[in-house]
Amino acid sequence: MRTGRFSDLAGASIVAGAQSAWDMLLEEEHNKHITTSCGDLDKILGGGISCKEVTEIGGIPGIGKTQLGIQLAINVQIPFDYGGLGGKAIYIDTEGSFMAERVFQVAEGCIEDMLKLNVSQLKDLETLKEKMHPNTFLANIFYFRACSYTEQIAVINHLEKFVSEHKDVRIVVIDSVTFHFRQDFDDMALRTRLLSGMASKLMKLAKQFSLAVVILNQVTMKFTDGSFQLTLALEK
């Protein structure tokens, strides 16, 4: 009897959460985006990095993945009046490539761009200059350094609680997601389970808190159909 009652409750919960396709379309149309500061890339992405979704970006070493991650952590803080989300960022660094000095420079560039684009429309230019200081941008980035895959998993497991306590967080950047899983990991089945579990938690986090999750990843060569092709690291 207990099992039957539990099944009925679970079924009722699922039915109660039903959503029409029309509602889904409206939700997608009103979904917020974070600009990458590159018009062409924003266009490809349908307006920028989408909230409520997990976006994976891959590339060879040195191509600028960390630069893009830092740019997004800055751009998410652009005020609503300038087309931004006015939010904060979480940056999970697995490779030690995050540099505060570089973040400061990117913040300076972002502020300069905002002033140039809007100077003719601003009535309170001096007030904006006082508020938009690079130090403020840096203070709104929560940085986590994960030195092993266990630390990375621990941080991701802690994200739901952390974001619930910092509801103005609008983006989580992981740079890079597979770095620790590519080194000295002999149990492939365990690795697959850990990565799948991590992906599920990140997707749930994005939906639950209406934020963007960006995972940066390396690419590797894979032999497919008689030739070598570039593919995301650890991709099946």
Rank of each mutant, 00 (worst) to 15 (best):
Glu151Met: 00
Ser37Gln: 08
Phe137Ile: 10
Ala199Gln: 15
Leu125Ala: 15
Glu160Asn: 04
Met114Trp: 01
Ala16Asn: 11
Thr35Cys: 01
Lys161Tyr: 13
Met99Arg: 15
Gln67Asn: 12
Gln208Tyr: 10
Ala146Asn: 09
Leu205Met: 00
Ser20Met: 08
Asn217Thr: 01
Pro79Asp: 00
Gln105His: 14
Ile156Gly: 12
Tyr82Thr: 15
Asn118Gly: 09
Phe142Arg: 05
Leu117Pro: 08
Ser50Phe: 06
His180Ile: 00
Glu53Leu: 02
Asn140Thr: 07
Leu216Ser: 13
Glu29Ala: 12
Ile34Tyr: 05
Ile153Leu: 06
Met114Ser: 05
Asn135Ile: 04
Phe80Val: 14
Leu72Gln: 06
Gly62Cys: 00
Ser37Met: 02
Gln121His: 06
Lys201Ser: 14
Met203Ala: 12
Ala18Leu: 10
Met114Lys: 01
Ser148Gln: 04
Val103Tyr: 06
Ala206Met: 08
Met1Glu: 09
Gln19Tyr: 06
Ile74Phe: 01
Lys131Leu: 00
Glu160Cys: 02
Ala233Arg: 13
Lys116Cys: 02
Thr136Lys: 08
Glu95Cys: 04
Asp184Lys: 15
Asp187Cys: 05
Val219Lys: 06
Ala212Arg: 02
Val169Arg: 03
Phe98Leu: 01
Ala212Ser: 03
Ala12Glu: 02
Met114Glu: 01
Ala16Met: 05
Gly84Thr: 11
Thr220Leu: 11
Arg102Pro: 12
Ala21Asp: 11
Leu122Pro: 15
Ile171Val: 10
Asp187Ala: 02
Gly17Glu: 09
Gln121Ile: 05
Gly96Arg: 03
Lys167Arg: 11
Leu115Gln: 11
Lys116Thr: 05
Ser97Ala: 14
Lys201Asp: 14
Asn157Met: 03
Glu29His: 09
Gly226Asp: 03
Val177Leu: 04
Leu45Ile: 13
Asp8Ile: 06
Lys204Tyr: 09
Ile174Val: 10
Ala100Cys: 09
Met99Asp: 12
Ile14Ala: 07
Met132Ala: 07
Leu190Arg: 11
Ala107Met: 02
Ile153Met: 04
Phe98Tyr: 11
Ile57Met: 00
Ala10Tyr: 13
Thr3Glu: 15
Lys201Phe: 14
Gln183Ile: 13
Leu216Asn: 03
Phe223Glu: 02
Val15Ser: 08
Glu28Cys: 07
